[in-house]
Amino acid sequence: MYSKIMVPVDLMHVERLGKALDTAADLARHYGTPVCYVGVTPETPSEVAHTPQEFASKLDAFAGEQAEKYGLQANSLALASHDPTIDLDKTLLHAIQESGADLVVMASHIPGFADHIFTSNAGAVAAHAEVSVFVIR
């Protein structure tokens, strides 16, 4: 059914991603597809890493852990963005093409008042992606 599953991860808040990670792993095992974990970093030092390079290697390690934990075939894709707060949606849409995924499994918060002004990232990705998007709340 699917050939690759993309899972956007925020390395800062991995604890909030549990349900999405579990769901993605279940689907991957069910369909026997590899998973690509995608992360977006600013080019400036952040909480996660001092350089984009370091971010990429941390993300790769994360993908390795997931592969071991769930028994999956996994890789990682790190993208750098000039202005991540604003460009995250665009960057994730670009990552779908870059990774060749045909299913996105993505965590999101329960929409509230603020979502009328600034949509959630998962909402924006679901609205604009050409592939299936599974939003986990």
Binding site: T41, P45, S46, E47, H50, T51, P52, Q53, F55, A56, L77, A78, L79, A80, S81, H82, D87, K90, T91, H94, A95, E98
Partner: peptide, 24 residues
């Protein structure tokens, strides 16, 4: 491109500090 796949940037001389961005 606005979005760039992270590629190796070669060497720099990072400063070792305990401080984490955003810790305060």
């Amino acid at each position: 491109s606005d979005q760039v796949v992270v590629a190796p940037d070669g060497h720099t001389n990072l400063i070792e500090t305990e401080y984490v961005v955003g810790q305060d």
